[in-house]
Computed example of a mutant assay.
Amino acid sequence: MSIQIVSGTAHPALTDAVADALGTEPVTSEVVRFPDGELRPVVGGVQGGDVYVLQPTGPAVNDHLVELLLLLDACRRGGARTLTAVVPYFGYARQDRRGLAGEAVGARVVADALASVGVDRLVVVDPHTSALEAMCAMPVEMLTAVPVLAGVLAQETPDTTVVVAPDLGAVKLAEHYARLLRRPVAVVRKRRVTGERVHAEELAGDVAGRPVVIVDDMISTGGTIEAAVRVLRAAGAASDITVAATHGPLVAAAHERLARLSLRRLLVTDTLPASRERPPWLQVRSVAPLLADAIGRLRDNEPLDTLMIRT
């Protein structure tokens, strides 16, 4: 059965790149937007096909999430044989547990919504929580872009470089980078004050006089990176600081905040569309080959082990 790729409006350039790598073209689709904000997706030609709907649910998260759900429903009603949601950036993944009695678990709500529209499989890239698979009724393929970014870093980082986790939640990720780069790891301990303000408190590891690579799964406001950089420079790290993250929402005043840090480079992937006015210190690598490889393996019933997160 032929692969049929359907694009949402969140990141059509990535969909085109994935389809090109697979030697096909996206299915014709349209999202009608009504004056009151309602969406009406129309998808053609998916009858009997193995359909992959590609849509990251980044900013504006709610709009893109609802659009994804409606696209999936349209494909199911259009007769898709199988239905896979390819969500490179999975919004609400940070809401994987309750901190207070009256809070929602957003990741579970989204997982249930995907199940309600008949999704057979979910493909994500470096989700913020490894618990996502346990929340979903359908199989979840959690791909990782770490080898993509580590391959770039390996060519340009000195042997004395230290890989830094900017908080305790990023330790396993930092260890993954460190294994690939064959570099030591240091860890910053932080305390989040608000959604944008972070207080970094101490550093475990030796960075004195050494270049560092700070790694994280995503950079949203830049607050965590800013706090980590301050701690590293206070500990005597070399001025040569690189930051690498799979996802770069870069919301609010993130560009301005990061520009003030005088980073050597910020390296992210294109799981989300990059800003048209990209600063010279921001570099983007594509996950289109990774997604195309995964889709091709799913089509051919081949294992995805080498593409997936290893915990």
Rank of each mutant, 00 (worst) to 15 (best):
D120Q: 06
R121G: 02
L122D: 00
V125T: 13
D126T: 02
H128F: 11
H128Y: 10
T129R: 06
T129H: 05
A131P: 03
E133R: 15
E133L: 04
M135R: 02
C136F: 11
A137R: 12
M138K: 11
M138R: 08
E141W: 01
E141H: 13
M142K: 14
L143S: 03
T144S: 14
A145D: 04
A145T: 01
V148F: 01
A150I: 02
G151R: 00
G151H: 01
V152Y: 07
L153I: 13
L153C: 13
A154H: 10
A154E: 12
A154P: 04
E156K: 14
P158K: 09
D159L: 04
T160Y: 02
T161L: 00
V163M: 05
V164I: 11
L168Y: 08
G169N: 03
A170Q: 12
A170H: 06
A170C: 12
V171Q: 09
K172G: 10
K172S: 14
L173K: 08
H176Y: 11
H176N: 12
A178Y: 02
R179E: 14
R179D: 15
L180E: 07
R182P: 00
V185G: 08
V185L: 02
V187C: 03
V187P: 04
K190R: 13
R191F: 02
V193S: 09
V193K: 11
T194V: 06
T194A: 09
G195R: 14
R197F: 00
V198H: 02
H199E: 15
H199F: 13
E201T: 15
E202R: 15
E202W: 11
L203P: 07
L203Y: 10
A204I: 15
G205Y: 04
G205R: 10
D206R: 15
D206A: 12
A208L: 12
A208R: 15
G209W: 04
R210A: 00
V212C: 14
V212K: 01
V215W: 08
V215H: 09
D216I: 11
D216E: 14
D216T: 07
D216M: 11
D216R: 12
D216W: 13
D217E: 14
I219F: 12
S220E: 14
T221C: 06
G222P: 06
G222I: 05
G222A: 06
T224W: 05
T224K: 06
T224A: 09
T224Q: 07
I225C: 03
A227D: 04
A227I: 06
A228K: 12
V229Q: 07
V229C: 13
R230G: 13
R230P: 00
V231N: 02
V231A: 03
V231T: 09
V231D: 00
R233K: 14
R233L: 12
A235L: 11
G236F: 10
G236D: 11
A237F: 06
A238F: 01
A238R: 00
S239R: 15
D240T: 06
T242C: 08
V243C: 09
V243Q: 04
A244G: 00
P249N: 07
P249D: 05
P249Y: 05
L250N: 06
V251L: 12
V251H: 05
A252N: 13
A253S: 11
A253E: 11
A253K: 07
H255F: 12
H255K: 10
R257I: 02
R257H: 00
R257M: 01
L258I: 09
L258M: 04
A259L: 03
R260T: 05
L261H: 03
L263W: 01
